[in-house]
Design a protein around this nucleic acid. Structure first.
Lengths: 340, 340
DNA sequence: CTGAAAGCGCTTACAG
DNA sequence: CTGAAAGCGCTTACAG
């Protein structure tokens, strides 16, 4: 049904290979007479010929497409990441598709395998996978990918992240300096590297200021807003409720806000809140959020850059880790602790 | 580098076609000896063979993949739509990819053409395209797709939408019944069908209650939060400010809320607000939003259903339009007009 | 029951 | 300068 090279070759009266050559614009070491060149263009237009990219890719062993695998497009961080990679792909002449794993490990595995077996040239991945073995395999198979935002300890893969340890440390330090002595911490536990780093930053900040670590105040949970809600409820129901809370993602934050609302807690009066957020959401909130702000657009740009480099050089290029700096923005969701 | 059928055929010592047949599980009219079957499975495992889906698709003329083309994944409506289609694809054994057009018409065209030329079996599209000619062409070419949420007047394409005219009519009627006499309306102008329907619903409701239509109170704008912000500012700066406002998307709403905040307008005291929203955002807001709520999950399910049907029957199936009912939820972003 | 061949729609090294 | 052939990695009708 779809018109092929053969069809237009027949119409023009030349060999399909000639058509291919003309359309590829390969005029360096190849020159057709202007007449047949014109009639080729005419036929292409008339028959509405569009090359079958699948056949092309099979032959060329290159799809000229990259994919992004993210845990949750509802999280504006990932939407922004997608946008910035999209732009980079445009600039480099790559096609771009997004796959959403909904924080589901099997879906992630399935999607990555699908994209790979379909010949997608490379992937930017924000992993939810707990076991890094899967990614080690990808590396062994020389499949080009770069991790973004989250990664694993000393994995031999290109990655673009922020220093989550530092980010959390500073944020918690800020709360401590405001006089808070009971500071809760809610984090998504799925993401190996990031999670441990966050927890470490939290604990380190406490110990640095000689504060006792209280197990009840830390919740490592799933990454959905429901998980955030549950975690926050547990914390709000503690006999000795914390006066400050740090939560490390927008998705979790949605649940935390809901739980706070239900518990009748006012922010910042009853609870100082620090997030890890993206400005897009702020207009929705009754206050401006004090938050760690990751340079998401830049992360996307760098990730795309590393990916293109990896696609071209495959195993030859050295593994590159890029760590970008987050900003810490003070809004009015945080307040001095009562009595300090 | 990647291991192919040939490689494992060589290893086992049979013809590639035999491998293919065994792996396809075609045991009806075909039986290999259990020994070589086992050694095939063993070799597949050892060499870590994964079929090249591109080659497979080229041969089969079927990729077993569908795509979703949406204007803005930041809008939770589209994220939810994606999720529900994703689940449907899982159930039917289809792969699924998302392309985000960022409300950009050229990007939309580019993406649809890309997906099509890559052999994606069919598409669910939430169009931003102004001119429907592009879609008429797709139909002419028998390319399977279904429109979701937005469509064009009497286009010969499968579609799943809500009755936006009715939805808006009812919402505006509700405001009128609360006593509001100056009701503004902000809508995204890009989406042919939807937009006109929204405007019509708004105007119809006014005229039904013998209210004058005031040109200054209606803003047809882009679909981004920035557009919403600009539109709202214009409206809030009118000498005779409206007491109520209806806005037809979450993205626009973000901008509207920002503008309201900047103008020092309290909701609902100074301004009754009706949205067209998705519950996911509500925890962010200081009030529960009175809003039209579209059955997005169901729209996705129906759209997927229509798409699978279309993929199978191509041109044989009649064009199907499905119109689902929205809910109207009264929250506390609306109030009786002062003095009524 | 299994092998050899053709073909999906391209591109490109090889002839002429 | 252009045609004919081979081949990308599969599947399946056709032989044997």
């Amino acid at each position: 049904m779809a018109v092929t090279l053969k069809d237009i070759a027949k119409k023009v009266g030349v060999h399909p290979s000639t058509i291919s050559r003309v359309l590829s614009g390969d005029y360096e070491n190849f020159n057709v007479s202007p007449e047949i060149r014109d009639s080729i263009y005419k036929a292409v237009k008339e028959l509405n010929y569009v090359p079958n990219e699948m056949a092309r890719s099979l032959r060329l062993k290159k799809t000229q497409m990259v994919g992004l695998v993210v845990p949750n497009i509802l999280n504006p961080v990932f939407a922004e990441l997608a946008h910035s990679i999209d732009l980079a792909c445009d600039a480099q002449g790559y096609g771009f598709v997004i796959c959403n794993t909904f924080e589901n490990q099997e879906k992630e595995t399935k999607y990555i395998n699908m994209l790979k077996s379909r010949g997608i040239d490379g992937l930017v991945i924000v992993p939810v996978q707990e076991k890094r073995a899967f990614f080690d395999d990808l590396i062994k198979q020389d499949y080009p990918f770069v991790l973004a935002l989250r990664q694993f300890d000393d994995i031999q893969a290109d990655a673009v992240v922020t220093d989550h340890f530092q980010d959390v440390f500073k944020a918690v330090e800020y709360l401590i300096k405001l006089g808070h002595r009971h500071i809760a911490f809610i984090d998504a536990s799925q993401s190996g590297f990031v999670n441990k780093a966050g927890e470490k930053g939290y604990k380190q900040a406490l110990s640095r200021y000689n504060m006792r670590f209280d197990h009840d105040l830390i919740q490592s949970t799933g990454a959905t807003s429901d998980s955030g809600y549950e975690a926050a409820r547990q914390i709000f129901n503690l006999p000795h409720r914390p006066t400050a809370l740090m939560v490390t993602s927008d998705s979790l934050l949605v649940g935390v806000l809901k739980a706070a609302f239900e518990s009748g807690l006012s922010i910042p009066e009853d609870l100082s809140l620090v997030g890890c957020s993206n400005s897009t959401l702020s207009p929705y909130m009754p206050f401006s959020l004090t938050a760690i702000s990751q340079p998401v657009t830049e992360i996307g740009e760098k990730a795309a850059e590393l990916l293109f480099r990896r696609i071209e050089s495959k195993t030859d290029a050295s593994v590159k880790k890029i760590v970008l700096h987050s900003q810490f923005n003070v809004g009015d969701s945080t307040l001095k602790a009562f009595g300090s």
